[in-house]
Design a protein around this nucleic acid. Sequence first.
DNA 1: GTCTATAGTTGGATAGAC
DNA 2: GTCTATCCAACTATAGAC
Lengths: 223, 223
Amino acid sequence: MDLDRASPRPPADRRPTRERLLDAAEELFAERGFAGTSIRAVTQTVGVSVSAANYHFGSKEDLLHATLRRRAEPVNQSRIAQLERAEAEAGPAGPELEAIVDAYLRPAFSYEVVPPEPRRQLLARLFSDPPEIVAALRRDLLGEVTQRFVDALERVLPGRPRAEIALGLEFAVGVMVHLVGQQHSLVPDASDGTPFFSSAEIADRMIAFAASGLRASVAHAAD
Amino acid sequence: MDLDRASPRPPADRRPTRERLLDAAEELFAERGFAGTSIRAVTQTVGVSVSAANYHFGSKEDLLHATLRRRAEPVNQSRIAQLERAEAEAGPAGPELEAIVDAYLRPAFSYEVVPPEPRRQLLARLFSDPPEIVAALRRDLLGEVTQRFVDALERVLPGRPRAEIALGLEFAVGVMVHLVGQQHSLVPDASDGTPFFSSAEIADRMIAFAASGLRASVAHAAD
DNA sequence: GTCTATAGTTGGATAGAC
DNA sequence: GTCTATCCAACTATAGAC
């Protein structure tokens, strides 16, 4: 029973402090944003001292960046994987617009790629925390993937200016961020508290909304 | 020249302190959110003491609420006015879906209703500041107007469940909030810094996007 | 209605022991 | 790698003078 004596703590506590700090920070930053979250709140959640966080991450801003990076990377990988799969399955004309939009939007909404609330809300902070804190990182995390998707969309919207396509994708990002951020007023609940829509149904409808909207906004006032 | 001696300050300084505080608070809350804004930053902008703000508004939270209320009310009035105008112009079948969506989305985007950046961004904080601070006010400010628009949409989408329509409108709100919040990565600038799209053009395309998306999301998996 | 002064917290970050 | 202790700055809110 040496093993038991050496690991008396529950599994969650045996993970490296650095990762436990990232987990706690992710949850708090997701719920309260950068300014609304203190390093102390993070370290008290984990049960370590403030200086432990500063040792591992250097500053509060770097801690936020680390949480955002950790979460954005699997989302982007899933986006690319979905897009490549759609391209492999499609003929030489390339995948349908709906499939491209699906590949971009669904990963941020999938519990297989992103943890449940409240941590899922974290990526919305990339768009609501102050620009000095998140703008450069946002470009770094989203720029390349997004250009890849604009490329794909150009093939199904031949002749349309790239800027119009990018604007349409920006609209789609807006819908996604709003839903991921979970500050809804309108999505109704049934009177007994059961939601009217499952998460998967919301995602399906969101994708239908964005795909149709993208087509229409790009066709808008077409010359 | 008694008048001159009695009013030596520029016009901006002659407005009541309460309103100058609201103006400064609006700009700072819009840019930095609730937690990222201090009462001191607001009062220093105006050039009064901290206790002046607490005298007029009671607390930081009440100050935020006052700024949000002041800005939301004209937007809602414009929404209702636009909707009623569309209803008056339409036949007995009621206005087109596009006109309804336009009436809901355009006011928050119009410089005739809302001041320019950064203050225009304020209403996006209704969806990114902590729920304890904004959720109840959000329902108060948006609930009634939005139900009115769901009513109007039910007439052009006969037979569709109200919940589906509300979800579609929630998607549209997401696009609007994202654009009003001004944290874009994708909308491209020309290399010389001139934006590709004017504000009006973005609004037009946003409305085309949302209207088409709403139709598609409500039609989605229709039984 | 606005001020000064201050109470009482909380914050980010670092020094230095272990 | 984690701690305690500490610095110092900034914060919200209020009391009380004018």
